[in-house]
Write a protein that binds this DNA or RNA. Sequence first.
DNA 1: CTGTTGATCTGCT
DNA 2: GCAGATCAACAGT
Length: 191
Amino acid sequence: MKALTRSFYDRDTVDVARDLLGKILVRKINGNTISGIIAETEAYRYKDDPASHTYGGMTERNKAMFGQVGRAYVYFTYGMHYCVNAVARSSDYEAGAVLIRSLVPKTGIDFMSRQRKISDISNLTNGPAKLTQALKITKKEYGEDLTKRSNLFITDGLEIKKSEILAGPRIGIKKANDKMWNFKMTKNIFT
DNA sequence: CTGTTGATCTGCT
DNA sequence: GCAGATCAACAGT
């Protein structure tokens, strides 16, 4: 399966977030292939989005969101968790990224179980910080090119119909709750 | 400099 | 349902 091209990410962040549903996030470590189907995403934009990390301008942490699209923005939060985004924006914006919130485990489930120290598959990658732990994604993957088939990339996956996508407010934020920029599949992700 | 908050998860009540 | 873990960013003194 081919990695998604740069042009996929060169569109409005909200559209990219919606279109990433059903795609496959692939992680390669020491010859192991760990992957999962993207089941939930959120768009974070720039000056029109008070909930975005970039709202107050560029910092050392968020500079990837201002950089080349199709790369990974990994941030550390709550003193112990990493979350991974795909940098994406149209030319109308200077910054933007899509947070990957949930995966359906596909390959490398034994690796994920060891990373997470649990065996319950339904609890392996169903949260933004859970999936980075399962796929061993840390600051080392900051800025990784997701369009190249290297250590971390995204390929085509399932065809998702418009009618199977549910939009809602983003999770865990206190600002801009009017923006329906959280996207997930209407179907149970474990079917 | 100090204090508070946060795109979270876990374990306990 | 809620406390605790514990670091980066930011507002305030």
